[in-house]
Design a binder for these strands. Sequence first.
RNA 1: GCCCGGAUGGCGAAAUUGGUAGACGCAAGGGACUUAAAAUCCCUCGGUAGAAAUACUGUGCCGGUUCGACUCCGGCUCCGGGCACCA
Length: 816
Amino acid sequence: MDQQYDPQKLEAQAQQFWAESGSFEVVEDPQKESYYCLSMFPYPSGKLHMGHVRNYTIGDVISRFQRMLGKNVMQPMGWDAFGMPAENAAIKNNVPPAKWTYENIDYMRDQLKSLGFGYDWKRELATCKPEYYRWEQWFFTRLMERGIAYKKTAPVNWCPLDQTVLANEQVIEGCCWRCDTPVERREIAQWFLKITDYAEQLLADLDTVEWPEQVKTMQRNWIGRSEGMEVEFEVPDHESLTIYTTRPDTLFGATFMAIAAEHPLALEAAKNNAAIAKFIEDCKKTNTAEAALEKMEKLGISLGINAINPVNGEEIPVWIANFVLMGYGTGAIMSVPAHDQRDWEFARKYGIEIRQVVAPADGSAIDLEVASFVTKDSVCCNSGELDGLDFESAFNTIADKIEQQSKGVRQVNYRLRDWGVSRQRYWGAPIPVINCADCGTVAVPAQDLPVVLPEDIEFDGIGSPIKSMDSFIKTSCPSCGKDAERETDTFDTFMESSWYYARFACPGQDTAMLDQRADYWTPVDHYIGGIEHAILHLLYARFYHKLLRDEGLVHSDEPFKSLLTQGMVLKDGSKMSKSKGNTVDPQQLIDRFGADTVRLFIMFASPPEQSLDWSDAGVEGAHRFLKRLWKAIYQHIASFTSGVNTDTATLNEAQKAMRLKLHETIKKVSDDYSRRLTFNTAIAANMELLNSVSKFDDESPTGQSIRQDTFENMVLMLSPIIPHLCHQLWRDLGRDSLILDQAWPQVDEAALVQETIEMVVQVNGKLRAKMQISAGADKASCEAMALDNEQVQRFIDGQPVKKIILVPGKLVNIVI
RNA sequence: GCCCGGAUGGCGAAAUUGGUAGACGCAAGGGACUUAAAAUCCCUCGGUAGAAAUACUGUGCCGGUUCGACUCCGGCUCCGGGCACCA
């Protein structure tokens, strides 16, 4: 064993050993319990950032720990390789997106290897490769057949100068990022997947997964199930207006109707009213992002026509309002300003009546001059036969009546909208559709797949190059054989990331999307990734898994059994990003301190779900611990001769205390690794253990054996986090087995038994004394000893004791 | 705007089921070793008062429940994440 800890040398050796022995290559083994540990694959942006290092270290620690529990662990890695940054880089550096992407992948793969992650590299995939996306294209054609994929118009951000579609992130304060032209909203035909058909399942199955409650709540809110009614309002001389409301109990309070700018009734009115046409035109000049829509000023214009309220026959005016969207519900609402805040603001602005029709159930007063009153804990008033009824009774009474009169129906609605998968961009998987003048949209037949994205292109950034590439576009109709054109839109990159986890199980499969190996490995046992993916990616992947199931390709309902959402990596209180200039390059730290130091610090600095504030000084602290550990073991083996021999019957007090500390640590650390996933406290416990064993200077054969046993267990416990160092130390401790294949340490319950314990004594809940008492002491003797304590007597000061609360083994609280 | 989180010493954090607030580490200060520095080792380290023992006080703010609250409840403030074409 070297006297000095030399991470560069030792890490290179360990990594070479793992690569040469194929230590992390796995195959299906029905005899062993499988464990699929997956970290969200990276976008190959150039080089690893600290968020990646954190994500992949967490996954690697869990994988190595599960392997020590005897499971058949699969941990793959790949590349989420399509997306806009490659296009941006292409413009900036004048290099084709494909070349840029492949070079980044090569560089980042080396970085991952230098961090010692235990990936099965034989399973590596990149989503931009035709052998990957061909199955996505094939699956899409299956979804077209099943009616899950369909085409409809939807709004996009449009730059009128560049004549191109913009992503939300390319719209800066309402203007095009490239030419600063004000952006417009434009309706174009796009492909959608009917995720709304699966809304109920996506909601219900959330109860079956072990995910953070926070994420489940976010998904529930996103799906947004609501029970309400569609109600029809007659409009004299026009088609009637159907609205959706979750509050039919407030129908008597409707004082106007509001419809979307794209609503047929609005478009009809615009034909002979210039002011209305102008207003509709203005509505198009807003961003399509929800945040922008919600923050903009509420504006409207009256159509000058009235609708008839079916509950009381009242005529109320119809307005166009910019906060009503055609894509939600029916594109029309009834407005009850007294009991909806948006309606309230709108009514105040345009001087519309605010009529209270429900009051707080607890009888408290409300002030409609200040704000609307919206809770469902309410009682009806000013509402005819509904007066005095609570929300539920009023809902049912009015719903029954409206349904009897055929003026509306009960309706469950979801906030969730169908998934728009078309992107008007170049660097993505081509949508496998051919547009024929006679046959319409025709799916590309399976034998003609993949539709390969041309990679050798000139990219100017203004529009996708394949949109003007005849060699790509011109083809013949698979149905009638006549000249036809390919679809030039590509898929949303969430399509690729929605099924990669299943494809990892089936490397080399080139005749099918998935095979039976997917059933051995999926669902993923543990999925690890950023909290920023809590809704979109995780919801789409859940949806896709159900689609795969319904196609018979997998046989489970959910893709990810348990989920760990890691927090952000921050520097000086804000997220590390290039734009803020506060990034720390992991590579420099790896080169300087070694991968183990980086892994240790990142796992020690905070628990995985919390944000992590980067500290360069903390890294040095982590490095110091590794040097201390090395030195302690070096000194130990210099004098250690005997084998491990701990005859526990004859131990002295210090020896018993050392074994107690070791087994307390094993117990705590096992719980931290398996149940709590708090690796920071697992590391802290091992630091304490090192501090204890360093003070344990018993050089007797028994003492040495206890020290050897302690070090062996410490190295085992730390090996998932600092695998290179532990790989070496295990051998230096005289073990010729491979630490990777060692079993996780076992707690010796006998070592945990103590004769005396410390109890805390409180007077009126305040800590006043501590006492040593025999572990088996009964209630009475605990109380007697506590009352007898001098310090306690001082605080009781002769006052009568009202009661004594005893928490066994912990504390006595004397109440006076 | 809507949804979801978070806030504990100079800093990162710990306190797992309502039961000793600050484990572990960083930084800082003092000391040992050294010609010197680095490295290493030892000591101190929430605040106030005190030589000390110790006392009081302290977990973003205001209030509540409880023998007992960082932990539970109600109301705020500030910070972070997501909001459907960033991944």
